[in-house]
Design a protein around this nucleic acid. Sequence first.
DNA 1: CTATCTGCAAATGATTTGCCCACAT
DNA 2: ATGTGGGCAAATCATTTGCAGATAG
Lengths: 171, 171
Amino acid sequence: MESRIERLCIDRGLKMTGQRRVIARVLSEAEDHPDVEELYRRATSLDSRISVATVYRTVRLLEEKGILERRDFGGGRARYEASEHGHHYHLIDIDTGKVIEFEDEEHERLMRQIATRLGFDLVSHRMELFARKRNEDAATVSAAGIAAGPEPEPAAARRFPVEKRFGGRGR
Amino acid sequence: MESRIERLCIDRGLKMTGQRRVIARVLSEAEDHPDVEELYRRATSLDSRISVATVYRTVRLLEEKGILERRDFGGGRARYEASEHGHHYHLIDIDTGKVIEFEDEEHERLMRQIATRLGFDLVSHRMELFARKRNEDAATVSAAGIAAGPEPEPAAARRFPVEKRFGGRGR
DNA sequence: CTATCTGCAAATGATTTGCCCACAT
DNA sequence: ATGTGGGCAAATCATTTGCAGATAG
């Protein structure tokens, strides 16, 4: 009943309102990297008395509290994931928008070493790989975006192949 | 008289207008990673008959042509740099917004290897280090943002220490 | 009870675009 | 000449915020 993230919120002394509880639950159950729009969709499907503004406010609050981590996978909107999924990196399939996580022990050490060499203390770092599934069958050239497998990633994915380009802030 | 980037534009058959020539020159002479606002400032100081819209259009065009590369250093606006500065990475001083470039031969190979292991072909990748200058004297705790050294990076830098937070698209 | 939250709508800021005129080729 | 580029202002989009009412502790 009490989601993992709700627990974290309570521990940090956050006032738990109905909408926060729902959002916390949605975040706790998320296995992907939803953007605000998607979080809003999932949250309202559980309790319609939630507005996007609240999702934005909550997501920001949780990020400041270190419970959530904001990601930028190039789709134009921020994506979120619970902090305690451990340190890992992301590889984004540029044809489907699907995100794959992977670890690499060597990296953090290497980056820290580089920062040190430059006279700095590493505070945080970011690394994303944009790649395309290796030619498996043969027919996948322009058909890729159409028949891609399951789509764990929400809306944003659909805009990936086409590389949306208009209004608002781009890319 | 003919800037390095103007040359590239001509080679790719782009129609060279007065404003493009100026923007190309500004880009060719840039030693930092200016955002559109800064490019606009520099361009208009050479020829006032240029609008921001044109800078945006040009910068996007050059990016599509592979002449420019767009960067995101977390300031909320895109930063640009000529492609042919060779492959390198960036370390952003989170107190001053200053950007330091560094190389790391090992990285690309390592990333490509990871992508391959996951069944993908690496198309592009991104990596940024956010760090803080290692404690030199002692007095640098909250005074940092005030007395930072030279500021090769434009406007955006000033908003870094405070971690701007309002309106528009944030962070 | 009171500080904090929420919904709603309006505001923001970066970036794009429609329209019509100017210009490079 | 003619398709392409530019200025200006309006449009977009993700995100934030002011305000008045709701609510947790």
